[in-house]
């Protein structure tokens, strides 16, 4: 019976975590629509999450776009389909790689930073201090970050899409001898509004997940350096897994029909 009990305990623990995260998400959403609003903190979060993530997102998508063009060209040449490179790079970047890579890179950069910052505030009693100064830590720390990440990620993903397509274009034109004008025409002709919108919606969901995981693990950080370190790791790992899982669910939702 011992193995069964262990499985049961693990299942109950997992359900308890899911419940706590769901309550945390509900609480942050409910605070989102109730004053007071901390515009200065929101602006700062927008700058940190959005603007300062641009280089990492840009570089990641640039190289991925280039590699994608090479892969599609190499694979497509097996059945004389080299010409699909521009359209597949565009659709692949906009629907899938742009938002997912943006989400994962921001998860690594931002979820870790949020969890470390809030976790340190937790262990140094700064969060208790906030509460004694009549400031709700949920409103002051979580809401601005969650809102900023939810709004910033679609913009980052859009920039990432453009840079990724440009990476494919550069490789296509310089290495694979595509005609520059034909490459651009193919890219534009094959992209539909739905492709772009679905990618941006995905990115918004990923942004929500990244900030939520950072804040949740930071707020529930254990004591000491070890506790903060574990919170940081858990934030990145859980955000990355949830991004990939929700990406599948959203893809089912948008494209299964």
């Amino acid at each position: 019976m011992k193995p069964l009990a262990a499985v049961g305990r693990a299942a109950l623990a997992l359900l308890a975590v899911i419940g706590r995260v769901a309550l945390f998400a509900a609480s942050s959403l409910s605070h989102l629509v109730r004053p007071p609003f901390y515009f200065r903190e929101f602006g700062h979060a927008l700058l940190t999450i959005g603007w300062f993530s641009l280089p990492v997102v840009g570089l990641t998508t640039l190289f991925t776009g280039g590699a994608l063009a090479l892969q599609i060209y190499s694979g497509g040449s097996r059945f004389n389909a080299e010409a699909v490179v521009p359209s597949i790079v565009a659709i692949g970047m906009v629907r899938e790689l742009g938002p997912v890579l943006t989400g994962l890179m921001v998860a690594g950069r931002v979820a870790a930073a949020i969890a470390a910052e809030i976790g340190t505030m937790r262990v140094t009693e700064q969060i208790d201090a906030l509460a004694t100064l009549s400031t709700n830590p949920m409103k002051y720390l979580t809401v601005p970050r969650v809102l900023a990440a939810t709004l910033a990620l679609p913009v980052l993903a859009a920039v990432g899409d453009a840079i990724g397509i440009m990476g494919g274009y550069l490789v296509g034109v310089t290495r694979l001898d595509f005609n520059a004008a034909a490459y651009m025409t193919n890219t534009i002709d094959f992209l539909e509004t739905g492709d772009v919108v679905s990618g941006l919606v995905k990115a918004a969901v990923f942004g929500f997940i990244v900030a939520l995981m950072g804040c949740y693990h930071g707020m529930n950080s254990g004591r000491g350096a070890r506790g903060v370190g574990r919170a940081t790791t858990n934030a990145v790992v859980s955000a990355s897994i949830l991004i990939l899982a929700s990406n599948y669910l959203l893809t089912e939702l948008f494209f299964s029909a």
Partner: peptide, 14 residues
């Protein structure tokens, strides 16, 4: 809470 002020052990400065 407006009635209270608190000095924390480690300062708890932001």
């Amino acid at each position: 809470l407006a009635r209270f002020g608190m000095l924390f052990q480690g300062g708890a400065l932001f």
